[in-house]
Amino acid sequence: MFILFDSYFWIHESQWGKEGEGGGNTFDVVLCFVGAIGGKAIQQLLVMFPQDSLLIFVASSPSLCSGTRTAELDHRLPKVSASEEMIVCVAVVGHQNNPLYIQSFTEADDALKLHHIVHCSLDVIDERVNNPKKSGPMLNETFLGLLYPTENYKVYGYLTNTKVKFILVTTDLDVRDADVRNQFFRKFHAAYVDAVSNPFHVPGKKITSRTFAERVSNIVKSFGLGSSG
């Protein structure tokens, strides 16, 4: 039998995503497009299919591409260190969808791409807010959860009661929702509240506070450490 993985989402949402269960399946050939599923997912597939089925990884970079599933593969895989799995971008967006604060935390020159992701996620937030699926005790919940997974990123949202949106983009695809909510957004919200309490901050205008920027970068750093450990 033959199975094809062409997106990260597919692995997660399909029944094969549950660890160990895939092991009971006897696929002779597993074909994965690494670019689409993300390098991290390879490890997961190796756990899912521990038997002697042939895993084929297709990737644009030769170092990603390997035809066999041996121990050798493990160290030929891109080493995704803890520092690389991290929050790459955070943003505060006002109630009229005007950006109040946007900060990326990558070395690479991909600010535009991250801004684009944040911008796209605003539509997802609107959609969630206008079609609430949850009710009752969840009514006052400000955490919107995973907005959408992309190839390499996960995007989370948080909506305050004043319709200010916080958006988080992370490359850590194994991050837990509860961690994002309690360890990141709660602290981030507190930092935001203090920043807007500055009498020199004009509501609805960009947040220029250096203290806020510092606090945010500390929250981002400590979150990376907390979730990888």
Binding site: A195, S197, N198, P199, F200, T208
Partner: peptide, 10 residues
């Protein structure tokens, strides 16, 4: 001065 941060103009 809790929360206060002087802007460059002040």
């Amino acid at each position: 001065v809790d929360f206060v941060e002087l802007p460059d103009t002040c």
